[in-house]
């Protein structure tokens, strides 16, 4: 009976072809569509300013440049170069992200001129002392989660889907995530992260979206609030450039060692 009522309710809200969809199928379809709309950008580079704020409101700042190479059928490759604070200048981080199997990660330590392979189980660990975990900044692949559509909701004046994502990869710090995805452009507007005990741990709000190459949307502001420790991190992105002609060679350990 419940199911019938649910179906009738759906009938009023949705086009006919959606009828056959379970919430899981619908959630997956939304993720697939979002992924499809972000295919083909090839490569990008950008600058990022990161403001870390503690419970007392004290701040510290990081400046980072990133380069990313789109890899079809797998996670992206990315190279992160640190400019500030000055003591970590010339430090660089190379990551080959994957959907299910662990990411391959190398860190270049300029003081010793040493490239160090980093263990891959640190997905839930903080990225450079921020409230962003490695898994939050890793490329978002469809296969990383199982999905479930929860409801439709207006967020910040935009019609959005709310979907639940459950990490399928090992070593995640989350039991689930709830993501708000706008219906018009399939951009992620907000994510709630639930910790291993199922409590709401963090909320990420993405805003200031700009479109590139007439197709690809990138958020220029990302605010992560940690509800448990009261700390927050704000990322401000700038200088996005697409299709720089990067190849695998720009994301190898030789490049990691010399990039500045």
């Amino acid at each position: 009976m419940k199911r019938l009522l649910f179906a009738i309710a759906l009938l009023n809200l949705l086009p006919l072809e959606a009828l056959a969809e379970t919430p899981e199928e619908k959630g997956l379809a939304i993720a697939v569509e979002a992924d499809k709309r972000d295919l083909g950008w090839q490569d990008s580079k950008a600058s990022m300013r990161m403001i870390l704020r503690n419970r007392q409101g004290e701040t510290s700042e990081r400046q980072i440049r990133t380069r990313t190479l789109e890899v079809e059928g797998d996670g992206d490759k990315s190279l992160t170069i640190f400019d500030h604070p000055a003591d970590v200048k010339n430090t660089a981080f190379l990551s080959y992200t994957h959907a299910i199997k662990p990411d391959d990660q190398w860190l270049y330590l300029p003081a010793l001129k040493r490239v160090k392979r980093i263990a891959s189980a640190n997905k839930s660990g903080p990225f450079v002392g921020s409230e962003f975990a490695y898994e939050d900044i890793s490329s978002q692949e469809v296969k990383k989660y199982s999905y479930k559509w929860l409801r439709d909701e207006v967020f910040d004046g935009q019609d959005a889907f709310v979907i639940e994502r459950i990490p399928q990869y090992k070593h995640s710090g989350y039991t689930k995530q709830h993501a708000w995805i706008d219906k018009e452009h399939y951009r992620t507007l907000k994510v709630d992260y639930y910790d291993r005990k199922g409590a709401l741990l963090k909320t990420l709000v993405l805003s200031d979206y700009k479109q590139y190459l007439g197709k690809y949307w990138r958020a220029h502001k990302m605010e992560m609030q940690n509800h448990l420790n009261g700390k927050s991190t704000t990322l401000t992105w700038s200088d996005y450039e697409f299709r720089n002609g990067f190849t695998d060679r720009d994301f190898d350990r030789n490049t990691l060692k010399r990039i500045k």
Binding site: P102, R117, I118, A119, S120, A121, K170, H171
Partner: peptide, 9 residues
């Protein structure tokens, strides 16, 4: 040589 997996190196 280094073999890196899970929490091990």
């Amino acid at each position: 040589a280094q073999l890196t997996f899970n929490s091990w190196a």
